[in-house]
Write a protein that binds this DNA or RNA. Sequence first.
DNA 1: TTGAAAGCGCTAACAG
DNA 2: CTGTTAGCGCTTTCAA
Lengths: 328, 328
Amino acid sequence: MAVRAGVGRGTVSRVINGSPRVSEQARAAVQEAIAELGYVPNRVARSLVTSRTDAVALVIPEPQTRLFAEPYFSDIVRGVSAELAGTDMQLLLTLVRTSHERQRLAQYLSAHRVDGVLMVSVHQDDPLPDLLKRIEMPAVLSGRRSGPEPVSHVDSDNVGGARLAVRHLVEVRGSRAVATITGPPDMDVARCRLDGYRQAIADSGHEPDERLVAHADFTEEGGREAMRRLLVRRPDVDAVFAASDVMASGALRILRESGRSVPDDVALIGFDDSVVARHTDPPLTSVRQPTEEMGRTMARLLLEEMATPGRDHRRMVLPTELVRRRSA
Amino acid sequence: MAVRAGVGRGTVSRVINGSPRVSEQARAAVQEAIAELGYVPNRVARSLVTSRTDAVALVIPEPQTRLFAEPYFSDIVRGVSAELAGTDMQLLLTLVRTSHERQRLAQYLSAHRVDGVLMVSVHQDDPLPDLLKRIEMPAVLSGRRSGPEPVSHVDSDNVGGARLAVRHLVEVRGSRAVATITGPPDMDVARCRLDGYRQAIADSGHEPDERLVAHADFTEEGGREAMRRLLVRRPDVDAVFAASDVMASGALRILRESGRSVPDDVALIGFDDSVVARHTDPPLTSVRQPTEEMGRTMARLLLEEMATPGRDHRRMVLPTELVRRRSA
DNA sequence: TTGAAAGCGCTAACAG
DNA sequence: CTGTTAGCGCTTTCAA
């Protein structure tokens, strides 16, 4: 290769890496040689000397649920992948099931086997973000554990979205006893959506009532159970804001089973814009968060951070919107 | 490291790679040194010399649809990931959107940047399997293009599953005019499910009628359109076998809009065991294919093939089963 | 600006 | 069985 272009190995390398310290003449010669020989640099050899891997990991903690089947993860993956397609960065998918796998992951990251990390669905007690900070590995979370994080993260406006939804139930549908089925208290996203609910209730002038608040775990089963509890505690409930579409679907089923016609008796609203919301019949009104855009933003942020070592971490909040699929 | 154990570099390497040509004594010394120094071998350096990458790519062609949101892909990913977790093979996720990206992928694979390839959702005209065969890269497909493939693949028993479903409609529900909404003819999976439908109709002794067959594209919109066509062509249709759950959901909506009550007037059956099938109300009876198991099998097959260069490719067919979620 | 040379950390071939 | 040696293909000083 160096011979073919009539220059030294060093010069070839400089051309490929776009160094400015190369004469036009040499650059042209090398580029011609590249074209003729169909030369493709060996990334592994490069990695060995640069100690970069040109790969980022997307970490998805995966408990018992089929979480991954939800559009949230798919959309994140799509967004990340789309953003990375323009670079020659590889996307490693890392599902973490067991605590053993968590430890292996920690080792893996500590060994700097990737250049950066994206994480979704972080729980309160997750030590990974701190580890990432400590080993100074560029990282971006979607969501956060609570309060300030040591690494960058992108979030959607959960509080605002929840307020939008609950206000819709109160003002447009005229509901008077709006309940909420929210997520586990150890997830910031659940707390925020609950906050939004409470704010909207306060704004409406209705009486807040803790019996109208049910915690669940973002699964359909959880949604069903929560709905049953709500019906016992406040049989007069006439609207439900569920903090996820799957829970909304579960609630819907219970309402139907209990003989209540939806939406005549009860208004139901989910959070995500999802398969479930769309395929439930009638489709649920819901709050859409721009999930794919969140994925793209995460990737962009990560790339920037990888290019600018030591840069301060950022927090980005993307807007949410109400999607009405049926008339009130 | 070699010094610490009081042996040569070569011996260290042999111990790490589990070579049998090492004395117990030396092995113990090295392992102790490893433990004390917390030594972790550098994979990149190893890759450079072995020219293996310890990574496999999962290729997902992704057209305009939100395909990835369907449980099929998620379950495949879960299965593959679970199987790979035991090895130290990395999983690269490769979504292919544009033809430009397809070409980049072809280059990428030709450059042997991964040790093996898993592919899902292959279409008739996909050249990738042939490329993989040509460059002798271990590869496993889920499904096939049509007839024999040059590489290994795992499939579910689509013909049998479709027969099961249609027989259920005919025998248990007593339907007389069973229609089918099937996938695009350029996908083997669609042709097989259509075959199964035809066989079951033939078995039942009912008159086959091409007006009862509608092709669609595995999307909900496609399912709706197909259902509309069917209602025009054979208003007496009293059962539908849809070759995917999403299409079944679309068909369901049209049936409801047309004032027909399901399941009183009409029986509907989907193919996959999915979020949609479960959340549709009432839940659809459906045919379940063991998707996660398919993912695991794909990964296992690939690992075997990587370990045994030159091995003949295999075809595996996994059974399907009928899942009844409501009484007839 | 550029060629030459020195490794990056590992494995594999080769003598012992 | 084991120590030594020679690279894998690239980037990066370091002189020129």
